[in-house]
Amino acid sequence: MDSSQLLKGVLDLAVLAVLAERDSYGYDVVRRLREAGLEDVGDASVYGTLRRLFKAGALTSYVVASDEGPHRKYYGLNDVGRSLLQTSAKTWTSFAATMNDLLKEVDPG
């Protein structure tokens, strides 16, 4: 199974988790997700997810001017985003536990 398929379902949760740690701009989110181990994550996927979460009212955004390079648009969680993260995390935890339970006997070799 391609892990990018799995990632599709949990990318929102991953992005929310990264932003919960600290506010970030788009490319920073991509980089941090990759550093965390999600190497397959697509740039466009992260960017699109950020824009969607922002449109859905889960994120705040603000522009930070930088001396070198372009202005950066930072995203951070608001209350909606935090509660979304909480419920999504709960769902994930129970789902992951179920899957682990199912796969207990399987030897990944």
Binding site: G26, Y27, D43, Y47, G69, P70, R72, K73
Partner: peptide
């Protein structure tokens, strides 16, 4: 417009990150 609002900046960031072209990276 909503989706692509800050795509330019974002891509500039990606481009600045490495020497590879955008097409090679993305």
């Amino acid at each position: 417009d909503e989706l692509l609002e800050d795509l330019d900046e974002h891509l500039a960031e990606v481009a600045a990150e490495s020497g590879e072209s955008l097409e090679e990276r993305l």
